[in-house]
Design a protein around this nucleic acid. Sequence first.
DNA 1: TTTCGTGCAAACCTTTTGCAAAGCC
DNA 2: GGCTTTGCAAAAGGTTTGCACGAAA
Lengths: 151, 151
Amino acid sequence: MSSLLDNQRDSLDPAVVAVADRMSDSGHKVTRPRLAVIEAAVNAPGAFSVADLEHWLDQRAESPGIASIFRTVRLLTDLGLFQRIHGAEECHRYIVSQGHRHYIVCNNCGALASFDECELRELAERLERSTGFHIESHLLEFFGRCPRCIE
Amino acid sequence: MSSLLDNQRDSLDPAVVAVADRMSDSGHKVTRPRLAVIEAAVNAPGAFSVADLEHWLDQRAESPGIASIFRTVRLLTDLGLFQRIHGAEECHRYIVSQGHRHYIVCNNCGALASFDECELRELAERLERSTGFHIESHLLEFFGRCPRCIE
DNA sequence: TTTCGTGCAAACCTTTTGCAAAGCC
DNA sequence: GGCTTTGCAAAAGGTTTGCACGAAA
């Protein structure tokens, strides 16, 4: 008997499949509501909130209900497949994780650009020596205006 | 007629006076409830939440009520006198601002260490050229374990 | 005196939870 | 079949707001 994910594999966006596979690999079931949430996330234009996902899904009459969206977002975030974006005000937006990357967030429209160089290792090591903290992770984001909003 | 702030100036912590003066300079009244909130913030051991401030003030029977604490924290944050600290989960803690500094947050107990070097100007300029964004600010924090929690 | 801030309680939103029914493997 | 997940509705937090009263300059 084949799984839901295998049945739909060919008709789904590869980015959706990639997330679903990793969810499956970590022992979680790939259900229709979860696939719908992943599709909504992959199709979001930038960082998305739970409300954004619900809105997108509502329009397609595929919304599994807000509680399930919250549960799925939390699960995927815990698995590292979604990543939280911190805005100056708003800290409850997410993106589909793309490994260790950092983001520039447009203060006006929320558009994102990403980059991977962060050159913080050396600084982190220096800080470990001077403060005695053991550093496990970091948060680096830039805020500003995207090209479209500058015009 | 002398202001509340002037009357109490000598008996207050200089750090409280510094914040109150800047609040006054920007045209906001320095009232007893606001002074109490500033005192609570200055006396907090690390980053504080609104609930922390309320608790501290409650113990001294000086709490102006949660709504006023929220309003004061928001005002001081808008004025740049308080600064928001972003944790991995919790994004609603604040510190009394100390200019442009960055923080290392202990994932276990919330202790902070700060530093000022961030060497991000060059990276920011490179990113502006490559992405077309205009960068206005940044967020940089490290997370880990403080010396006490490592033991 | 006039304006700004306070305090209470109610409203609001977002997020979580309990639980019976349904779905996945 | 056994275990996980869902969906609803209700609860729980946390934050904001309306408005009459009080305080600051």
